[in-house]
């Protein structure tokens, strides 16, 4: 039996567990409902702009995705290592020929598969409903597809980060606290701190040089900037998102940032798992 077969076994079991635990159902429902709510309630498309509905909803959904996808990704991955230590199954699994690197990669793939499924179904249903009600054009479909694909990439980043954090403590409780902390810092506080700094700086050196780089360095912001920058619309964008059209970097650098985060998090998860004594 090869390493690939062993990894397929681990990934399949993770996938099955996520189904049994109703995680997939819950996440899919959340993605569908939030996307539909954005499209049809609140500041959704109105009046003459109906054909743009998909594009406009993609723009506002990219902001919501920054909160929702990392949360769901951390939820599925935070106890992947610490939980197995606590339940004693890590010792069992590592007594078999399975290598630690294989374990990390296989769990990552299993978690990513369930998250991809939930995002694809959730945003897929919402996209079909919006297109059915308001109609769709090529630009709208493209924006929607881009949103789904990059949301999966953003999810991958946070699954890998969640696994790295899960390799730090020996208790699930601590791992959960770390995951919530990571979400708060990366998704909420980081932007607030940057906005605060910009206001204090009042258009000085910081705002012109350091600020764009710092925004881009955050995976959530990189995801949002990428999507907003590529959406050709005159929808009002405010706050950090104003950068989307004035970014002093090529737009693909946002994707590169996400890939770098993913690679670094996976490497950290692997390194932290290697030093565990089950």
């Amino acid at each position: 039996m090869t390493g690939f077969d062993r990894m397929a076994t681990v990934a399949t079991t993770e996938f099955r567990l996520a189904f049994r635990n109703r995680w997939v159902l819950l996440a899919t429902l959340a993605f569908t409902l939030f996307a539909l709510a954005l499209a049809f309630l609140g500041s959704g498309p109105s009046g003459a702009l109906k054909a743009d509905a998909l594009t406009l909803t993609a723009a506002s959904l990219s902001t919501l995705t920054v909160y929702l996808v990392p949360l769901m990704a951390l939820l599925v991955s935070y106890d992947s290592i610490a939980g197995e230590i606590e339940r004693g199954t890590l010792a069992l699994v590592l007594a078999t020929p399975l290598k630690r690197g294989e374990l990390v990669l296989a769990k990552f793939c299993g978690h990513l598969a369930v998250l991809t499924l939930a995002i694809a179904i959730g945003y897929g249903i919402a996209g079909v409903v919006i297109a059915g009600v308001h109609g769709a054009d090529d630009a709208g479909l493209l924006a929607w597809g881009r949103l789904v694909a990059t949301a999966v990439l953003l999810g991958a980043v946070f699954i890998a980060s969640g696994m790295a954090l899960s390799g730090l403590p020996r208790q699930t409780g601590t791992a959960a606290a770390l995951a919530i902390g990571a979400w708060l810092v990366l998704v909420v506080l980081y932007d607030l701190a940057l906005l605060g700094a910009v206001i204090v700086d009042q258009g000085g050196v910081f705002t012109k040089t350091v600020f764009p780089a710092l925004v881009l360095a955050n995976p959530g912001d990189a995801f949002r900037l990428y999507n907003l920058a590529l959406i050709e619309s005159n929808a009002p964008i405010a706050g950090l998102d104003g950068l989307a059209h004035t970014l002093p970097f090529p737009v693909s650098s946002a994707l590169a940032v996400l890939v770098l985060w993913l690679a670094a998090s996976l490497a950290a998860a692997w390194a932290l798992t290697r030093r565990i004594r089950p």
Binding site: T13, R16, L17, R20, N21, R87, G88, T89, A91, L92
Partner: peptide
């Protein structure tokens, strides 16, 4: 191992 808790859902 002396203590092992298999996943309850499987």
């Amino acid at each position: 191992p002396e203590q092992v808790a298999f996943p309850k859902a499987l």
